[in-house]
Design a protein around this nucleic acid. Sequence first.
DNA 1: ATGAAAGCGCTAACAC
DNA 2: GTGTTAGCGCTTTCAT
Lengths: 358, 358
Amino acid sequence: MSRQTAAPRRRATMRDVAALAGVGLKTVSRVVNAEPNVSAETQARVERAIDALGFEPNLGAGSLRREGGRTLTIGLILDAVDNPFSAAINRAVEIVAAARGTAVFAASSDDDTARERELVAAFSRRRVDGLIITAYGGDQGYLQNEREHGTPLVFVDRVPNGLLADVVLTDNAAWSSVATQHLIDHGHRRIALLSDDLTIPTARDRRLGYERTMAAAGLEVPTGYSVGDLTTAELAGAEVERLIDRPDPPTALITAQNVITIGGVRALHRRGRQSDIALVGFDDLQLADLLSPGITVVAQDPARIGQLAAERLFARMDDDSGPAETILVPARLITRGSGELRVRRSGRTGRGSRAPAS
Amino acid sequence: MSRQTAAPRRRATMRDVAALAGVGLKTVSRVVNAEPNVSAETQARVERAIDALGFEPNLGAGSLRREGGRTLTIGLILDAVDNPFSAAINRAVEIVAAARGTAVFAASSDDDTARERELVAAFSRRRVDGLIITAYGGDQGYLQNEREHGTPLVFVDRVPNGLLADVVLTDNAAWSSVATQHLIDHGHRRIALLSDDLTIPTARDRRLGYERTMAAAGLEVPTGYSVGDLTTAELAGAEVERLIDRPDPPTALITAQNVITIGGVRALHRRGRQSDIALVGFDDLQLADLLSPGITVVAQDPARIGQLAAERLFARMDDDSGPAETILVPARLITRGSGELRVRRSGRTGRGSRAPAS
DNA sequence: ATGAAAGCGCTAACAC
DNA sequence: GTGTTAGCGCTTTCAT
C-alpha cells in the first residue's frame, strides 16, 4: 500500500554523492554539468553514486551562484492559456525552451492591467531568465526595471506602450485591410467591424486598416458600424443582432478576433442570415471549413509567432544587444465561402450599392 | 533610446534593504513575509526602503532554507498544452494555484514515455512542490521516488499504472456506455468505435464501455469496427472512409476523443454522409452546434477536472495523508443532431437491422 | 520587538 | 585531474 504522505526521505545532495563516490564535491559538480577534466573512471564512479542515490541536482540552489544567476526558467504571460491562439503560442515557446533546457511558467493576464503586473512580479521573484508577454493596453513602462536587471523582454501579438522592445506579431493593419478589401471586391459597401477591447493596440491596428481601406474606396462607415469592447462571444453576438436589426444593416461583417467570430457566426445562424450576410474573421477556428458557408478567415500563425519570440528571447539572453526589432509574421486569407458572399439585391441594400464585384 | 542589454544593474537584496532602513536582516524578512513582531514604525521604514530599491525577494534563495523547501511552484504535465481539453485543465489549475501564490510550469508530454520522464526529472530538479500529471500508458512506478521525497502527485484524465495515487477524471467506461446506448436507442446495430492510442487507460475504458454495452444489447462488433491508434485527425478521417467503404459499413460512429471527432466529421462531410451516418464524439468542440447536423458529444468538464486536481494537490501538500482517492467528474451528453440520426432503410443496412428506435 | 549566526545546495575561483 | 574555500540570498534558530 503506497501511502500518500510518508516521512519524506531527505533528498540526496552533491555532498552525499561525493561521499559515496569517494571524490570531492566539485568533481560531482563537473560530472553533473558535463564539464571537462574528469577521468573516465572517476566519472563512472560518480555516475554510479548518482544512480544509487537517485540524485537530482537542485537547479534553484545552483542558480544562486551560477553566472548571471540563470534559473533555466522563463515566464510567458498570455491573455488566457486556454484561448486557442494563445495556446498555440504557448506550445511553440515550450518547444524552443525545451531545446535549451529551460522550463516555462505560463500564466493568464485576462487582459487585466493589475493581474499583468502581479504576474510580472511573481516571475521576477522567481528570477526568470526572460519574459515573453502579451501586453494589455496599459503602460508597460514598469517593465523597464526588469530589463535593467538583465531580464530580456519579448512581446507577442501586441506592441507594448512606453517601452521599446522586441515584438513579434502579425501586421494587423495590413491584414485587416486585406479582409476589408476582400469584402469590397465582392461588392460590399456597408461593412461593419466588430472589435475587441480597443485599449489593445492590436485591436486598434485592425480598426485602422479597416478605416483606411474603407476611406480609400470612398466608403462611409456609418455611426455604430465600428463597434469595440466585444470581449465575449455573447456580447459580439448581441451586437451582430443589433446591426442586423438596423434600418440600414450591413451586408458584410469583419470580426476582428476569434472569440468575436464565434459569437458573430452563432448570431448569424440564429437569425438564419449566414448565407446572406458576408463575414471575414480574424484567426482560424476548428471546423470553420465544415460550416455552410465555410468561414473565411485571416489566419494568423501563432505557432510561428511563439517560435520566433522564443528564439528572439534566447538570442537576447545570449547577449545579442542590437536595437529592438519588430518581427512581422505572415498571415493568410483562407476563403471558404462566408467572405465571398455577394451583396443581395433584395432588401435595403442602399442607394446604388449594387456595384459589380471585381 | 532604451538599450536591450545594458550593464545589468545588480538586484537589491534583503541586506541592501536592511542597510538602507537601518534595521537587521531578519526584520526585513519579517516584513516581507508578513510575520508578527514588527512595530508599525519599523515596518513603514522597511517598506520605504523596499520601494526605494525596487526590491523583489528571491524566492528561489528562500526555498533553500524554507521549511519543507517549498518553492511555491508546481508542475503540470499535459499531453499537449494546445489541445483544448488540456488547455482548459491548465487554466483551472492556474486559477487555484494563483490563489495560493504558486506558479505553474506547464509542459507537453506528447504521449511519449521518454518525454514524460524527462519532464518529471526537469520539474524534480526545480523542486516543484507538487505534480499534476496526465500520464501516458506506460508504467508510472518511477514516480514513487518523487513521492517519497515529499512531492505529492495527482493524476488527471488518466489512471496511472504501477502507482496508487489520487486521480481526477471522467467515468470513461460509463460515459462511453451512454454514448453507445444512445446510438442503439436510435436504432443502430452496426456501430463502430474510433479510439486513440489504446495504451492510454482512458482509451481502453471507453472501449470497454462500448464493448459491454454492445454485448448487453446482443450486438456484434464485427472485425475492424473497433479501431485504435488514431492519434491524428488525418488517421481518424482515413479510417472513417475505410469503414464507409466496407461491404458492411457501420450506420453509426463513436469518436472517442476530440482530435478523432474532428477527423471523423471532416471525413463524413467529404463523403457527403454526415446526415446519413450517425456520430457521437467525446469532448465538446467549438462550433459543433453550428454544423448540419450539429455534433452530438459527451462533453467532459476539463475545467472542473483541473480545479479538483489542483485542490487535491494542495490538500496533499497541506499534509492530508488519507488514502488515494479517485474523483469522478460528471460529463453530459449534448444532443445536437448527429447522434440522433436514425438508421436509413436504403442501402445495405444489414439483415433485420431496421429495429424501431426507442 | 529585534538581531546575530548558521547553513540550505550549489557554482566560481583558485589552489594543488 | 582533482579538491578546498567562499559565498549566492534567504530562513531558521536562538539570543537579547
